[in-house]
Amino acid sequence: MWKRSLLDVKVKRGADVGSDHHSTTADIKLKLRANGKNTRSWKQFDIEKLKESNVRKEYTTLIRNRFRILENLNDEDDTETTDDKWGEISEIFTKCAEESIGFKQKQKHKDWITPRTWDNIIIRRETKKKLNEAKSQRLKERYQLEHSQIHRNVNRMVRNDKRANMDSLAEKAEEAANKGEKGNLYKITKIICGKNTASSNIHVKDKLGNLLTSENEQEQRWTEHFSELLNRPTPTELPIIAENNNELEISIEPPEMNEIIPAIKSIRNGKSPGNDNLNAELFKLEPVIDWIMRQTTANTPRDIRWGTFTTLENLDFADDLAFI
């Protein structure tokens, strides 16, 4: 930034920042380099709502109804490719998730502050405005005394709200630990410890354990560490690895039902969605498994069929499906 980049400066005397200093704004002229557009502009679904029974039931009903419509369309059209079928399936998941689950909403900063505290913050802001606009010394002294009292009350209420929020987070962490929910426990622990953002303040020590404070010493220590780690001497004896002449039996046939169902159930929860913006939790519900079973057993040569009403026509082969 150069001296000529500063175009104008203004003092905001009415800003309520809880300090004796006034906020300032400045108009700065900068030349920025374009970094390209962000290709990912979609919103993520609020998967946490699937834990609610009414939302999960609504989503399940929508998925089941739309799959029945899709089955009727597939019976009429046999020229669809795999990509066309996946396009229809992903569209069904997306529309059902939009109607029943919805997207994640942007959370407010410091949402643990109660409405009563926010009302007092607004009163403090209005008192600060009156103090700045007062002309006589008598009014300034009165508003200053009033502002100081309200400011102490706001600080006390904010401390109480933060303490109550910490107690609530501790109870949620204890509950998550009892239920074995390690993901939620890790997130809550990060919030309590105040480690929501990555920190660049990394302590670097030398070989003797002394803390290095200057940047040059830290850079030299990093250089020394990686030089010793990567520059290894050539081994004197090379390992003898025998060639394996046995051919592996790898099936190139389409996946079977006993491979598809465990693959779907083994997908880990709590992961970011891919390019289709569909989370793993959306696929692991009962209607999805039911639809896959009906599709994979509809035309089997052993006369097995998973019907619309979830019945097996050949009960002698039911033991083979017990893993489901």
Rank of each mutant, 00 (worst) to 15 (best):
R221G: 03
V11D: 06
Q220K: 11
R138A: 08
K10T: 08
T117Q: 01
H109W: 07
L315W: 01
N160C: 08
K106L: 10
K10G: 02
I240K: 12
S41F: 12
D84Y: 04
D27I: 12
A198Q: 07
N231T: 05
E133F: 04
D20P: 02
K37S: 09
D290G: 10
K110P: 01
T310W: 07
E217M: 12
S168P: 00
G87D: 07
Q218H: 03
R33W: 03
M257W: 08
K128S: 02
E141G: 12
A15K: 09
I121K: 14
A242F: 06
E224D: 15
L70S: 08
P287H: 11
E126W: 10
E215V: 05
L315V: 13
V17E: 14
N65H: 14
A26W: 02
V17S: 09
I240F: 05
R163V: 07
T114E: 08
A198C: 07
N65F: 14
E313D: 05
E48C: 00
K29F: 06
D319V: 11
L315A: 01
W306Y: 13
K51C: 10
L230P: 02
S214G: 09
I252E: 08
E219N: 12
L230N: 01
A177V: 06
F283E: 01
I240T: 15
Y143V: 04
I113N: 07
V288S: 09
K182S: 07
